[in-house]
Nucleic acid binder design. Structure first.
Length: 287
DNA sequence: AAGAGGCCCTGATAGC
DNA sequence: TGCTATCAGGGCCTCT
């Protein structure tokens, strides 16, 4: 599901709902996520006040009042639901919380506040929570990751020096979180389409002008996707269970066999597996 | 050292 | 209806 824009949508609604609130309780139904939830997890978080909810790349960062943190990565299929406490049913435990279309299976973790709860659901369990005990360790956690496309460090000099002598194709570089972080399989194809670059082009052969296009279009695609509430294909929903809208704006992703949307282009969108990941591009304007 | 490939896991869908 | 195979938006590990 989630690339940078989807994670940002989730972050924004979490911040709005739980900032300055105290964690009343934590319920771990299944600790076997990608990283096993440690035994001290509940005790560590319980009683903490959420002073901020930040994000780096595809990681949500809960910031606690004692200067510790909890990372949350949604993996491929993780979703967050925020459910309000339902006053009407205060005396019946059965429907204590209002829950429109709340999935019953795979609700692995619940973080409970006075007036609402945050539910983590993840069928494939590729997501994880991770306690980070201080800001020094937080910095260390992300030290290997490349800059986000929005950061000034993601500039022409950085990209050009990174690409020197590299024979890996550009599409795999956009997916490489150590080069640039936050881009996933959908937006990699979309960025290369806007930049008119063939996804299989070797990085060391990419000219300065194309690097500039990547810088501009990476920002553009991610920014637009955030504005549209993220992309919903298969299972992404925001914290209220509503779908995003950016999938309607896809130029290439899952459009194989269809006409290129670029004005005047007669191309047909192709699907090709590059390193086992589906990749979409126009056979004419991305030559 | 860089780069390709496998693997973690469940669910939806297609084909027989 | 019910099998099996294939594919999913991520990231880490291992092998060459």
């Amino acid at each position: 599901m989630p690339e940078l824009p989807e994670v940002e949508i989730v972050r924004q609604s979490l911040l709005k709902k739980i900032k300055q609130k105290k964690v009343k309780n934590v319920l771990v139904r299944n600790r076997n996520l990608r990283l096993k939830i440690p035994l001290y997890f509940v005790g560590f978080i319980k009683g903490q006040k959420i002073i901020d909810v930040k994000r780096f790349s595809k990681y949500i960062i809960f910031c606690f009042s004692n200067f510790s943190y909890c990372l949350l990565h949604l993996g491929m299929s993780g979703t967050i639901h925020i459910v309000n406490k339902c006053k009407k049913n205060l005396f019946t435990n059965a429907s204590f919380y209002s829950s429109p279309k709340l999935p019953k299976k795979h609700n692995h973790v619940e973080i409970i506040f006075k007036d609402l709860k945050v539910i983590y659901n993840d069928p494939r369990r590729f997501g994880f929570f991770q306690i980070i005990k201080n800001s020094k360790l937080l910095k260390k956690r992300f030290v290997r990751l490349g800059p986000e496309p929005f950061q000034s460090e993601f500039n022409l000099d950085y990209i050009r020096s990174f690409f020197i002598g590299k024979k890996k194709n550009i599409k795999n570089f956009l997916l490489d979180q150590n080069f640039v972080s936050g881009i996933g399989n959908i937006y990699a194809s979309e960025i290369l389409f806007l930049s008119k670059i063939n996804p299989q082009k070797k990085a060391h052969l990419i000219k300065e002008n194309d690097c500039k296009k990547i810088i501009i279009n990476a920002k553009k695609v991610l920014f637009r996707a955030i504005k549209k509430g993220g992309s919903s294909i298969r299972d992404f929903k925001n914290t209220l269970g509503k779908e995003g809208n950016f999938q309607k704006d896809f130029n290439v992703y899952e459009r194989n066999g269809l006409r290129c949307k670029r004005f005047g282009c007669k191309g047909i969108i192709q699907k090709k597996f590059i390193s086992n990941r589906s990749t979409y591009f126009c056979n004419i304007c991305q030559l």
